[in-house]
Design a protein around this nucleic acid. Structure first.
Lengths: 170, 170
DNA sequence: TTGGAAAGTCAACAACGCTGACTTAAACTC
DNA sequence: GAGTTTAAGTCAGCGTTGTTGACTTTCCAA
């Protein structure tokens, strides 16, 4: 099953178990797959006049209801200005609600409104359909490997954020 | 080994073997991992005043020496104008050579120059270092699964391009 | 020889990153 | 209580990279 990855070109030591060409194929697979990964949401977003930045904000507000702007900045890894531009439109369009913090009134806590949640469902459902189809094609063991490699590829800081999100051990 | 993916929340049917929450984690893993995946090349590109579009062009010209602009357009999935802007700077900077076709003189065949190849080596090496580290962390079976899921996630057209590239069965 | 494909160009625009400077309000710290 | 720090928001401006639309040049092929 793992032959295409573990097999070596003759004459190379087997310790590394991966040639540069095999690594290159992994790189290309990431490129092509990410395009597929974003294609379905992109089509939905376009109809609403939004972009990927809006999707990311919506996704993580759904995932961490009541999160602060600062927390979102850390997860998304963008500047305050970039995020703010997106949040402003989402709030103006009534998809996101910003509530002043009770403990710390400097903070704004972000929530999806009913219509924000509807769009989130729409977006994540489209993405899950593709994911589920891929998962069902390749089987559970491949999926486990997929997740392991992705996690190992993250920057440690992002790995931290990733594991802080719900659903790691469901 | 595959427990974290195959285990089910109690009370749900085991036929699908994946809850929406688990699919969501896969989606988030893609997001965070892709950031790590592009981080190292991005740093190198910045020093040269280039962006990801330049990297993609360089990568596939290296991979398919002598490819035509049209073929590159199909692989990259962008408009002629977007690609042309990038190619123009790469050609002006002496990283890419554009040769008029011999059989069909309308076509331009693209090649990396010596310095173009040097940058490609630099970029792909940085990316391979991370890939190799991730692969070594998780082992060959996980890598096989990783590649399988990625390929299943691609649009069929991109899957076609992916398999047309060298290195599939090394 | 003429139609159409391939390549290139120009203009204009949008999304979404970035930096830098600045304000407001609240919270802390001494 | 005064001063500093922190969270958030805003404005201006810029760069990369994507888009559409219109147009020209070159040149193969029917």
């Amino acid at each position: 099953m793992a032959d295409s990855v573990t097999s070596m070109t003759p004459g190379k030591e087997n310790l590394l178990f991966l040639t540069d060409e095999q690594l290159r194929k992994g790189i290309e697979a990431m490129f092509f797959a990410y395009r597929g990964f974003t294609a379905d949401p992109d089509r939905i977003l376009e109809k609403h006049g939004y972009g990927r930045a809006h999707h990311r904000a919506i996704h993580f507000i759904h995932r961490c209801p009541g999160t602060t702007v600062n927390n979102l900045l850390a997860i998304l890894g963008v500047t305050k200005q970039s995020l703010n531009r997106v949040l402003r439109t989402l709030i103006a369009d009534g998809l996101v609600e910003s509530r002043v913090g009770t403990r710390d009134k400097r903070e704004r806590h972000l929530y999806l409104t009913r219509s924000g949640d509807a769009l989130e469902q729409d977006l994540s459902n489209a993405q899950r359909v593709r994911m589920r189809a891929a998962y069902r094609t390749v089987g559970p063991e491949a999926v486990a490997g997929f997740r392991q490699v992705l996690e190992a590829m993250m920057d440690p800081e992002m790995q931290h954020h990733f594991n802080r999100l719900r659903g790691n051990r469901p």
